[in-house]
């Protein structure tokens, strides 16, 4: 059903360009996107690699830093009263607005993009981690205490597994943000990457190549999201969202 609709969409696109006599520099049919995209495959693949690198570096740095911070805030009343409100405030700031600044400070290279990806991923992970580690049920808290299992054992055997589903909400949200952040950061200032590519070819009135760039960007986003979903399936197969999904 879905596949039929999907194919129908592209067929309609293909022929509407002819029927409505749309100039090629405005919109190109999918067949031409494939053809011209294939001709420029080397550049597309290289730029996918560049943007992918920004996404992976920014995302994994965010996970590695945000998870322990979320954990620390969840268990420290001092951090909860100082750092936590600060993070909530910063979350309100549109991180992407910092992109021009980072580029002016750090140049056109990889680093400012990695930082932008990091920023758009960091906050959802932190906030969900705090929620996750603060949500252990009263019964399980009492149960853990009644066993005398201590902080570490309680963490490993009860708190951590109980927190994973909510953590994954953050991981998935961040995965969606990551490619968006990378593409916009590249729009603002870069000489490589899919965002750069889309901007340049659009300027040259080549919507065919722009769509090819968008296709690879989508592929990148889907791959990251797919990987996170796979990890979720492996780590929390017992959770209701995974069982129903």
């Amino acid at each position: 059903m879905f596949i039929a609709f999907f194919i129908g969409f592209f067929v309609f696109w293909e022929y509407s360009v002819i029927w409505f006599d749309i100039p090629r520099y405005i919109l190109t049919p999918p067949s031409l996107i494939v053809e011209k995209g294939a001709a420029d495959l080397d550049r597309l693949l290289y730029y996918t690699y560049i943007t992918g690198l920004e996404v992976v570096l920014g995302y994994s740095t965010a996970v590695v830093l945000a998870l322990p911070l979320g954990l620390a805030i969840a268990f420290s009343s001092i951090l909860k009263r100082t750092v936590y409100p600060f993070i909530v405030c910063i979350e309100m700031v549109p991180k992407i607005a910092f992109a021009p600044l980072f580029i002016s400070w750090l140049g056109f290279g990889l680093l400012p993009k990695v930082i932008i990806v990091f920023l758009v991923c960091f906050f959802p992970i932190v906030l969900n981690a705090i929620l996750a580690f603060n949500s252990l049920s009263e019964e399980l808290t009492l149960f853990s205490r009644s066993t005398g299992g201590g902080v570490w054992r309680t963490f490993i055997k009860v708190r951590l597994p109980a927190a994973l589903p909510q953590c994954f909400v953050g991981f998935k949200y961040a995965a969606i943000n990551a490619t968006v952040g990378a593409a916009i950061a590249e729009f603002i200032g870069s000489d490589e990457g899919l965002g750069f590519y889309i901007q340049i070819v659009t300027g040259n009135m080549r919507p065919d190549l722009a769509f090819a760039g968008i296709f690879f960007l989508t592929l990148l986003g889907l791959s990251l999201f797919g990987l996170v979903t796979l990890a979720e399936r492996l780590l929390i197969p017992w959770h209701i969202s995974v069982r129903r999904g």
């Binding site: 049920s137 019964e139 399980l140 009492l142 149960f143 853990s144 066993t147 005398g148 299992g149 054992r153 309680t154 055997k157 009860v158 597994p161 109980a162 929390i236 017992w238 959770h239």
Partner: peptide
């Protein structure tokens, strides 16, 4: 407790064993 303390990520046996594991 009225709401049981079975954890969803463990089997029945695993849940019984959780009591033992928590106590070392």
């Amino acid at each position: 407790f009225q709401d049981n303390t079975l954890v969803p990520w463990r089997t029945v046996r695993g849940n019984v064993e959780l009591q033992l594991e928590m106590r070392g």
